[in-house]
Design a protein around this nucleic acid. Structure first.
Lengths: 122, 122
DNA sequence: ATTATATATGAACACATAATCATACATAAT
DNA sequence: ATTATGTATGATTATGTGTTCATATATAAT
């Protein structure tokens, strides 16, 4: 994934602050962890998903109610819920033929609230 | 943006919980605000950007140092910094022909840390 | 058993977007 | 003034991804 041997070609004669560069190369997170983090935030970076997350922050809901409230198709709702499930954002509860979804982690609500605070203050 | 008149076509005979649907339709954020929120989170949902954000959380850096540390081109770095600027995530400081960038808001660091905590605990 | 209904899912398509490339701009150095 | 350097940016291309459509699955109702 990281092409180690190519760094010589880039900014070769333009390393402005060698000490800072070396220091931060050691301090920073691994690319793998950064990737996981970006994949996690990607969940929130879609209008449909953030709206679903928002609803689930208010209360547990079944698939069809979510689709109705957001005025989107059942299929689109189900596809996005699958993603939310996979990333541990929402968890399902089966009741007969119905599936109820809720937020699976308090961190999710915290991050949602922090983001909302940020955009409200700009 | 919202096609109000089309909701009749969807889930017409399948509104499972009319009371809940009506309640949440009133409680939930506007689509515009949800959109802004998703656009904001989108900033964190890219590997290159989250790595840049991470570095800037550690200290102010010039463009070329960022490019060198992350082993990406100056152009890619500059393009992403433009996005970070536009969304108020990073702010520039000019010094001669150099441009130094830093995180422009404490919320950013909080959200970054929350996200990191979340993926570390799974 | 058969039908209806709630949800899930694979494939195709349309759209968004990140990196690259070439180049422009601004400042520094000569 | 001219050249070098650090950064910015427009256009293009390649890739990723959200929605739709059709259909499958599972449970409920008749």
């Amino acid at each position: 994934m990281v092409k180690e041997n190519e760094f010589i070609d880039k900014c070769e004669e333009t390393i402005i602050h060698p000490d800072i560069v070396e220091k931060l190369k050691k301090e920073m997170l691994s690319e793998q962890k950064s990737y996981n983090l970006s994949e996690f935030f990607k969940i929130f970076g879609d209008l449909t998903r953030i709206r679903i997350i928002q609803l689930l922050c208010l209360q547990e809901l079944c698939v069809c109610d979510i689709a109705t409230i957001l005025n989107i198709t059942q299929s689109a709702t189900s596809h996005q819920l699958k993603i939310l499930r996979q990333f541990g954002v929402a968890k399902p509860r089966k009741d007969g033929k119905m599936m109820y979804y809720s937020i699976s982690d308090e961190h999710i609500k915290t991050i949602f609230t922090n983001g909302l605070d940020h955009i409200n203050e700009r």
